[in-house]
């Protein structure tokens, strides 16, 4: 009988051990949101935790919308959002007495990619619109070789999908036969293996890949000047993005509930410091301008 008592006791002790620790001793910051920002946020978290031991930062993805929802439920301290907050979200937050604070932490540029063996180097916005809406189904119609087009898109819960739909398709639908992939990495992989492929995503994912080609944009308004997202040397043209010359760039934001603790504020300060922005640069996203130009 004693044995059973011991087993029971042990069981309860284990249960007691599962109780979440006291946050006051083990400082924890939770960040949830955009999948686009997960890698970047993780790098910030790692650098910060290394610099300030004793603070633990927990980063999870799930999408921008999920991040905001978690912030509203109080299950996260910071929401990572790869777009601007929409009015409905601000309104919903206000109903719960939260005044969201949006802090731009980096920039992201959406690049359009094709297979490295595709002859096409640049496309105009209207050509892109026609391709992604399914009106043009062969690369020969936009100056390439006679090849059918496979459109690689993201799932409809992706922030990048929304951004692209709004900016390239002016809110209209993607072609019904476009393929939907889970994540930008899968998309890059697919386009790198499919000569017919064309896709889009954050430039950070593509810049280092040699097997996909980033397309430059032909600006129809300014007399067909080419928006050189990538220079001749293969480097990303940052100045061009900062100046707002590239059509498809967006802010990446951290959103807080407006009543953040000193601990969270300290982390936010780190993120937008020069040290934090250097990490953005290393992760192949676009840093906030003022820090890199001060170099």
């Amino acid at each position: 009988m004693n044995r059973y008592v011991f087993i029971l006791l042990f069981f309860f002790l284990v249960l007691a051990g599962c109780k979440p620790g006291n946050n006051r001793n083990k400082k924890v910051i939770t960040i949830k949101g955009s999948d686009t920002m997960v890698n970047l946020t993780q790098s910030w978290a790692e650098a910060y935790m290394k610099k300030y031991p004793g603070i633990f930062i927990q980063v999870t993805g799930g999408g921008s919308g999920n991040g905001i929802a978690a912030l509203m439920n109080g299950s996260t301290d910071i929401a990572a959002v790869s777009r601007d907050l929409n009015p409905k979200e601000i309104e919903n937050g206000a109903k719960k007495g939260l005044i969201f604070k949006e802090i731009p932490v980096a920039k992201d540029a959406i690049a359009i990619i094709v297979n490295k063996n595709n002859k096409i180097n640049s496309l105009s916005l209207s050509q892109l619109g026609a391709i992604f809406s399914g009106k043009i189904r062969n690369f020969s119609l936009v100056g390439g070789s006679d090849l059918g087009i496979s459109i690689y898109s993201r799932e409809n819960n992706s922030g990048t999908y929304e951004f692209f739909k709004k900016n390239v398709l002016s809110g209209n639908d993607f072609a019904s036969f476009s393929l939907h992939l889970q994540g930008t990495a899968a998309l890059a992989e697919a386009v790198s293996k499919d000569i017919k492929g064309i896709g889009y995503g954050g430039i950070g994912y593509f810049a280092k890949r040699k097997d996909v080609k980033i397309i430059n944009l032909i600006d129809e308004e300014s007399e067909f000047e080419i928006q050189n997202l990538v220079g001749i040397n293969g480097q990303i043209n940052y100045d061009f993005i900062w100046q707002g010359g590239y059509s498809f760039s967006r802010d990446l934001n951290f959103v807080t509930s407006g009543k953040e603790s000193e601990l969270i504020q300290h982390f936010l300060d780190f993120v937008i410091s020069e040290e934090g922005q250097r990490i953005v640069f290393e992760m192949e996203y676009v840093p906030l301008k003022k820090f890199i130009s001060a170099e």
Binding site: E155, S176, F177, L179, H180, L181, Q182
Partner: peptide
Amino acid sequence: VLMTTGNASN
């Protein structure tokens, strides 16, 4: 199927 069909609603 999520990974291999391409998920186009044809």
